[in-house]
Design a protein around this nucleic acid. Structure first.
Lengths: 138, 138
DNA sequence: GCAAGTTTTTGACAAAGTCCAAAAGTCCGT
DNA sequence: ACGGACTTTTGGACTTTGTCAAAAACTTGC
């Protein structure tokens, strides 16, 4: 992703310190929650309100600049990488999240076209399992 | 699904009025939230506490009697159909949820074996789109 | 029936987000 | 630069979804 300010201008968004800092935080910490990102931003800006973090994340998500994923039993996570159709692998016991390239050929999962008259725009895949560290623990 | 009492006994669960009623409610209303199910149960039993609904749903989910799905921006939904590897289609604007049989051949999506050392036990697929009713509205 | 062990209930609590109105900032034309 | 119009940010209250804990009420097996 190019630098935050340019990205914001390309999407007709006024450039504010908060938005720049949130974008950088998302870049630095992929798969972070809103609260974790808020912490990251505070390290850079000093302070930011919880509401602003949500505002910014919502705007950026709406514009397609970042992507929100919401695994079960966890707060929403945000990430930088967009448009490359990758999926996620989540550990059931610790919540650790990893990226996974689409497993078979090119996006076979998207083929459920027009079922029930729905217009489908995305297929989201989440693989559930146990990460190496948690396998050892038991 | 066979009758609720038999199902409970098969899993060594004491048969209580609440459990039977919740099971029936899940059967009657696939893809309902905990609150909607509570309403359904009240129509049958008169009253049930919110906590009991959660207790029962958790026990049933743990035993694999029902399945919980948790689409983004929605409370958890519960359903009867288990073990047939079907997925879900969710309307972004109204939240309507439909079942979808696995789109291509037999569960191609499950093939992301052992990525990152994870032991994968389930691949969950959610198709996002717009349902027919919401397409008309705009 | 009775004892032993589970469930259910009630009420308080926690996490993640949203709503609202006031204060502060950004951008654009001059 | 500067001012005004418009957008963001803030802070606080509120909502939703769900969990925790202790007491009261059930189920079950003998």
């Amino acid at each position: 992703m190019r630098d935050p300010e340019t990205t914001l201008r390309q999407h007709d968004l006024p450039v504010t310190a908060q938005r720049v800092a949130v974008l950088r935080a998302v870049s630095r910490h992929p798969h972070a929650t809103a609260d974790e990102l808020a912490e990251g931003v505070r390290g850079e800006l000093g302070t930011i309100s919880r509401q602003s973090v949500y505002n910014v994340l919502n705007v950026l998500t709406d514009k397609g600049i970042i992507r929100r994923i919401q695994p079960a039993d966890s707060a929403a996570l945000y990430e930088d990488r967009i448009g490359d159709n990758h999926h996620h692998l989540v550990c059931r016991s610790c919540g650790r999240t990893e990226d996974v390239c689409c497993a078979v050929g090119e996006a076979p999962c998207l083929k459920a076209h027009s079922h029930h008259g729905f217009k489908i725009d995305e297929a989201e895949v989440i693989y559930w399992g146990t990460c190496p560290a948690c396998q050892k623990k038991r």
